[in-house]
């Protein structure tokens, strides 16, 4: 497989300012998709985030991110949104933030695991094979 595709691509149909976009992440699965979706949803500036595996035999995922402030027809746009989120935020920036936060999370969990292991306050037992 001569795969020269970039790891992350932006699918056609994204907003020109990337306030809403679908990203295609190559060679990834639910493992990163669901974790990333969760972290993006923890961002209060993200209005919607979802991921999908479009086809089981194609090894990539789609991650959809929509930011508050996405251009939507004025009739659907509440005054709350217009006042609170006047600027259109980049979903790419949100994706990058989520990745950094996920990395912090895993680093923290690793530290906690090591700490518990080193404390040695657990039961050791002999398992017969």
């Amino acid at each position: 497989m001569a795969n020269t595709r970039p790891k992350v691509e932006i699918l056609p149909g994204a907003e020109s300012d990337l306030s809403a976009a679908t990203f295609r992440i190559n060679n990834e699965s639910h493992t990163i998709g669901n974790a990333l979706r969760w972290m993006l949803m923890k961002n209060p500036k993200v209005e919607f985030c979802g991921y999908s595996v479009p086809h089981p035999s194609e090894n990539h995922i789609h991650v959809r991110v929509q930011m508050y402030g996405t251009p939507i027809p004025p009739s659907f746009c509440s005054s709350f949104h217009q006042t609170k989120f006047p600027d259109k935020l980049s979903s790419l920036q949100a994706l990058l933030t989520a990745l950094s936060d996920l990395d912090d999370l895993f680093q923290t969990i690793e530290g906690a695991y090591r700490q518990s292991l080193n404390a040695g306050n657990y039961e050791r037992w002999d398992e017969k094979s």
């Binding site: 990834e28 895993f106 090591r114």
Partner: peptide
């Protein structure tokens, strides 16, 4: 611990690509 390493490698790879996109 190995699984954490694999996960953080994955994140680093995606992050590099996102930064390149930016």
């Amino acid at each position: 611990l190995e699984s954490v390493t694999v996960m953080r490698d994955k994140i680093a790879t995606i992050k590099r690509s996102v930064e390149a996109l930016m």
